[in-house]
Design a protein around this nucleic acid. Structure first.
Lengths: 225, 225
DNA sequence: TACCTAGGTGAGCAAATAATGAGGATCAAC
DNA sequence: GTTGATCCTCATTATTTGCTCACCTAGGTA
């Protein structure tokens, strides 16, 4: 079961959070000073942190930055003022989510759950690109050692798709990704490159069918059938 | 774009909210009586509700409770007195957030944004309902790991129904939700898609019967028989 | 039961989208 | 400039999907 670290100086609020997290099946630990967080995390395991902005000892923004130097754990910032949120996002201190007081227990639990699920997903998803090997520096692509002779655009296209196997990329997104300038090309252009890419991959591995079209949406790379 | 339902009896305040939400790029609809909310939501789609506490017709707490019986949409309660908030949280009527008057338009927009972000997170990240798993990025639906190969419309339909299991969606509402433009199609069209959807689900899990029709009302997703 | 309305179904047409092939535009190297 | 490779576009064909119609079945009701 996941463990949540609550960093909050107001005892009642901390208690409330703890109670609801417990009910939702989470473990928790409570710290009421900012300057004790780093030390705690160095010696204890925690999966997510609820971090108040105003803290004695060390302020929330600073705590967040320091934690980010050694951990990618989800951090949810808790602030008293809603207007602060935009400013905080601007600071880019690396928090994953923001909640403002007063909040309902429902909200806190929902956010904790959502953020934990995200990291779990990230971990379980091992991208499958069996055999394909792209070298961006040399613009060289190989399949099981064999060279696939691609042009620049074809290489970029394959690189984009293969970066997130399974994900559907719309033509718009593909264009934005390949043409960093705001150039506009026809949708059919993408089709054309896809066609050539398929042909060249087929030349190396005829049995393979990795570039799938998704009707009405775009294209997707996928190796397993 | 997301749509906000404003439930507020003071016209000027409602107007102010609407203006700022519009500027922030949200659609909105305004209702000034509590007893019209349920009816509106049964027939129209909305992503978030700003709900005043003191309302003619039906009081905010009661509206909130009733909406919660069929919808998990984010609800932000608006109250005149800050002291009330603690009491309201205690009631556990299921609101997600609380704002007290007088508020700055900036604050309202910030909270709306924050609450919508949460549900977006929830949605893109594979909501799981008893074995069903929908991934919007991949346009892919699975049941216990097995792929259900759906077209765009079928996917949207299943996504809509599965988002709130048990809730009955009328054909009008389904159409509004799927066709964001004000296109009008025959009722039979929905039936047709439902039929295909059922067929495809049955191909993967023949014993399952999850899409129920509700005579005179619409369709409902439900896994337990 | 008889009747009326709502939902289910299959076929077929229309619309949207994708694949393809040919040819012109562009660009870089020489 | 010429040349060859690459990139883009357009027109055509093929495919997929979406929508409707007509007819059928089932649920509700007097």
């Amino acid at each position: 079961m996941s463990k949540v670290l609550i960093v909050e100086d107001e005892p009642k609020l901390a208690e409330l959070m703890a109670a609801y997290l417990e009910q939702a099946g989470y473990e928790h630990h409570h710290i009421d000073r900012g300057d004790q967080v780093i030390d705690y995390l160095k010696n204890n395991q925690a999966d997510l942190m609820l971090l108040d902005l105003m803290l004695p000892g060390l302020d929330g923004v600073e705590v967040c930055k320091q934690v980010r130097q050694f951990s990618g754990m989800p951090i949810i910032m808790v602030t008293a003022k809603a207007e602060e949120i935009d400013r905080l996002i601007g600071l880019e201190m690396g928090a994953d989510d923001y909640v403002c007081k007063p909040f309902s227990p429902r909200e806190i639990v929902a956010r904790v759950k959502a953020n934990l699920r995200r990291v779990e997903l990230d971990q379980t998803e091992a991208p499958k690109t069996d055999g394909f090997d792209l070298d961006a520096d040399r613009l060289r692509a190989t399949y099981k050692g064999e060279l696939i002779d691609l042009t620049t655009v074809e290489f970029q296209l394959l690189q984009l798709l293969i970066k997130e196997p399974g994900r559907v990329f719309g033509r718009d997104m593909i264009m934005k990704s390949i043409y960093t300038d705001s150039r506009v090309v026809s949708d059919r252009t993408i089709d054309s490159h896809i066609k050539k890419l398929r042909k060249k991959i087929a030349a190396v591995a005829p049995e393979l069918n990795v570039i799938h079209s998704v009707y009405g949406a775009g294209y997707r790379f996928e190796n397993n059938d």
